[in-house]
Structures are given as C-alpha cells and as structure tokens.
Amino acid sequence: MTHAEDESLDLRQRRTRQSLVRALEELLAERPFQSLSVTDICQRAMVHRTTFYAHFNDKQELLRYLLLGVERRCVETCLPKDWSGEARDYFLTAARNVLDFFQSRRSLYRACLRSGADIDAHVLEDQAAEDLAQLLSQPRFHTSFPDFDPRITARFYTGAMLSLLRWWLDSEDPVPVERLIAHLEHFLPAL
C-alpha cells in the first residue's frame, strides 16, 4: 500500500502504520536492517504479527513505505511554493532545503543506505523525478526552460542531486552545506 492509499484507512489503521514506521526507524538506529525480524519490529511497535501482515507483506515493504514517506515529506517541505523568481535560484533554494532536510535525518538515511535490504534503489529517485517534472511543466518555468523536456531535465537534476546526497550523507567527514551549494552555483547555468 502506498501513502496515497492511506487516505482510505481509518484513524486506527493510520496510527498502526505510523507505529510500525517509528519502530523500524528506532531499530535501524540500533542495528542493521538484515538483523531485524518482523517480530522485532512488532515488539517495538507493540502490535501483533498478524496486524503487521495486514499492512505489509514483509519488512522490505515497510522499509520502502518508510522511504517513500521521507521522500513525500521532503517534497512537501523542501520545494519552494509560489516561486516567482529565477529558475536557477529556485533550484539552489530547493537544493539547500533538501540538504538541510536530509542532514537532520542523516542517521536514518545512513542506516537505510547500509541496510543490505532488497529494495528498489530507484524508488525515491523515480518519485522525486516525477514530482520535479510536474513542477517544471508549470507555466512559471516555461520562460526559463522553453525548449526543455521537463522529464529529461527532472531526471538529470534528480539523478545528480540524489547521487550527491548519497555520497554526502554516507561520508564520514561530510563537506559543509555551504561548500556544496557554492559548487552547485557553478554547475547550474544562468537560466
């Protein structure tokens, strides 16, 4: 089940899902994903295994659900709303917001990177690229990108940013955000 389908769930079901997600987040901070069992997650969430399986097929699906939730919150909070400035400034502001967002969730993201879980590594990239393509299709970006296909542009920037983000979050000695932004300013053409 996806986050969009959560709307059809009653309050009790939504709370159960959130409890399972929080339990997985807490456990990932303590030990590797591959060492976790559904029983461990259920005990931490204080739900029965039967309840777990009523919501998720396995722990990989729960992890995927957790990651999609993080991506959804990132899009909701990091992409500037009602932007009227230059497209280049929009991308730089969004990049700074994304870096700040994931820096505050660094331990969770690092745990997911090192999880060894059998999940589709492109889940977040696909969703983020789709969201950005929809945004770039809006009239306010047509003057900055008159000849650009929003899907191609979105894939390029999403792939580059996620690769940079993965490297930055997994680094033992991460580069300061300001240095990353300074480099991004050089990479983004004047649009």
Rank of each mutant, 00 (worst) to 15 (best):
L165G: 09
E125I: 05
C112A: 15
L165C: 08
S115G: 07
H142G: 06
A129L: 03
S107G: 03
R110N: 08
Y109I: 15
R166I: 14
A117C: 01
I152T: 13
A154W: 01
N97W: 04
L164P: 03
S137A: 13
D118E: 14
D126F: 00
D120W: 00
H142W: 13
D149I: 03
L164A: 10
R155K: 11
E130I: 03
A129R: 00
F156P: 03
C112H: 11
E130H: 08
L162H: 08
Q127W: 07
A128S: 13
P139N: 01
S163H: 10
P146M: 01
L108I: 11
L113G: 12
Q103H: 11
M161G: 09
L162S: 05
P139A: 06
D126R: 12
A154I: 05
F148K: 11
R140G: 02
L164S: 10
R110I: 10
S163E: 07
L113M: 14
F145K: 03
T153G: 06
A133R: 02
E130Q: 09
R155I: 03
R155G: 07
A111E: 10
E130S: 07
T153H: 11
R105L: 14
A154H: 03
A121P: 07
S104H: 14
R140A: 10
E125R: 11
L164D: 06
L165T: 09
S137F: 04
V98Q: 04
Q103P: 00
A154Y: 03
M161E: 04
D149C: 09
D120I: 00
Q138V: 03
N97G: 11
F156S: 12
I119A: 06
D131E: 15
D149A: 12
Q134A: 14
A94N: 02
A160S: 14
S104R: 15
A121E: 14
A95S: 14
S163V: 01
S137V: 04
G159D: 04
S107V: 08
F148D: 15
D100I: 06
L124H: 02
Q138W: 00
R155H: 09
D126C: 01
R114K: 12
H122M: 08
S104T: 15
P146W: 00
V123W: 01
A133C: 05
F101V: 06
R166T: 15
M161A: 09
Y157N: 03
T158I: 09
A129K: 01
Q103F: 11
R140T: 08
P139C: 04
T153P: 01
E125N: 10
